[in-house]
């Protein structure tokens, strides 16, 4: 990642991930739930604002898509940063059951929930 003629908004996320553009495709779905395992105060002072922001946001379990949107980071970058924070034990990601969308009990629960809105 040497000089780049491109606007900071585009380049910066890749600086954050040291040039890595994506976590493995198969990892976190957009709806995967991210939650912090530590309070933000426990992050090192050297933590990037993005890492701190993600840990703050995820004190309540939050979807990957929402982390990206609220942090205004592209999805790929978000996945990489979340993966890094998982690796150091600051976050956990619940990718959910792969067959939730075809689970009869879950669909019944969902149907009741939508009807009750």
């Amino acid at each position: 990642m040497t000089q780049s003629p491109h606007p900071p908004r585009i380049v910066r996320p890749y600086v954050l991930t040291q040039g890595r553009t994506k976590a493995p495709e198969s990892t976190y779905g957009l709806e995967a739930q991210v939650r912090a395992l530590v309070p933000p105060q426990q992050l090192d002072r050297a933590a990037t604002p993005e890492a701190r922001g993600i840990v703050e946001l995820c004190q309540r379990s939050t979807s990957v898509a929402e982390v990206a949107a609220r942090m205004t980071l592209p999805l790929g970058v978000t996945r990489v940063l979340v993966g890094d924070l998982v690796a150091v034990g600051a976050l956990a990601v619940d990718v959910g059951a792969p067959d939730a969308a075809t689970d009869v009990a879950l669909l019944e629960r969902l149907l009741d929930g939508i009807r009750a809105l």
Partner: peptide, 17 residues
């Protein structure tokens, strides 16, 4: 040792899409 710290017991909702 965060890794060793007791993990917060918090319910994670099932996400449907």
């Amino acid at each position: 040792g965060w890794g060793a710290a007791p993990r917060a017991v918090r319910q994670v909702p099932v996400a449907m899409k």
